[in-house]
């Protein structure tokens, strides 16, 4: 069984068995990831009568997403896998959104975007599913201002898909199922921040009030 966890937007946890979604809980609140993550996982196990050691694969949504919430899901996936003795993998959350669109009949190349705050968007371009049922990503993931992105993609004739908030872990889990069948799961669970941490290096040899922040 696969447990998938994504906290790119809200908190979403799903349980996938043999390519079927057994249960999914999504909490549409992007301020309370740390509060709800434990209970959400516990409820998924309880409603499906699943013991932690029956879960063999844990998949974390790697974003890109605003950082604070994203980390809660990856941290939880990491420790759940350690505690349950499961294997841990990571998948880009944008790949999961594309997967959902492409398996639901979309055939044209897709531009998937998600709110990156600060008037920017995360984005990636996909041109369909490969033979394993995995989205083929041709560009991204990256973060840009919408107008720059428009410029970049002028006359490319893309279908634009905006990430629905919250992300759904079932998409992530079903994609993981396809990747697992093809033996293509990736152990990299590092967060896709796509931005450096906000921090300004003080200039050397400057004194108080100038170099010192805070």
């Amino acid at each position: 069984m696969i447990l998938s966890i994504d906290t790119s937007a809200g908190t979403s946890v799903a349980l996938i068995e043999d390519g079927v979604v057994r249960a999914e809980i999504t909490v549409d609140d992007n301020m309370r990831h740390a509060e709800v993550i434990g209970e959400t996982i516990a409820k998924i196990l309880a409603t499906t009568d699943t013991k932690p050691n029956q879960i063999k694969v844990v998949v974390a949504g790697r974003g890109p997403a605003p950082f604070t919430g994203l980390r809660v899901g990856i941290a939880a996936a990491t420790m759940f896998a350690a505690g349950a003795g499961a294997k841990l993998y990571g998948i880009s959350s944008l790949d999961a959104i594309a997967f959902n669109e492409l398996t639901h009949g979309e055939t044209q190349p897709l531009l998937v975007t998600a709110d990156a705050r600060r008037k920017e968007v995360y984005w990636a371009i996909y041109e369909g599913l490969d033979q394993d049922g995995v989205p083929i990503r041709t560009h991204g993931p990256a973060v840009n201002k919408p107008q720059d992105l428009e410029e970049l993609l002028k006359e490319q004739n893309l279908v634009t898909v905006q990430a629905k908030s919250p992300m759904r872990a079932s998409d992530l889990g079903l994609l993981a199922h396809n990747l697992q069948k093809a033996n293509r799961l990736d152990a990299d669970t590092s967060a896709l921040y796509l931005r450096a941490a906000d921090a300004v290096e003080p200039k050397p040899n400057q004194r108080f009030g100038k170099a010192v922040s805070g």
């Binding site: 740390a34 993550i37 434990g38 996982i41 516990a42 196990l45 932690p52 899901g73 759940f80 505690g83």
Partner: peptide, 23 residues
């Protein structure tokens, strides 16, 4: 630090659920 604390809290909760141990 809130963001730092949340990493530990998320991790500990998942570990508790996965191992069935009180938190």
């Amino acid at each position: 630090l809130a963001g730092a604390l949340m990493v530990g809290v998320g991790a500990a909760k998942a570990l508790a659920v996965a191992t069935g141990k009180p938190l």
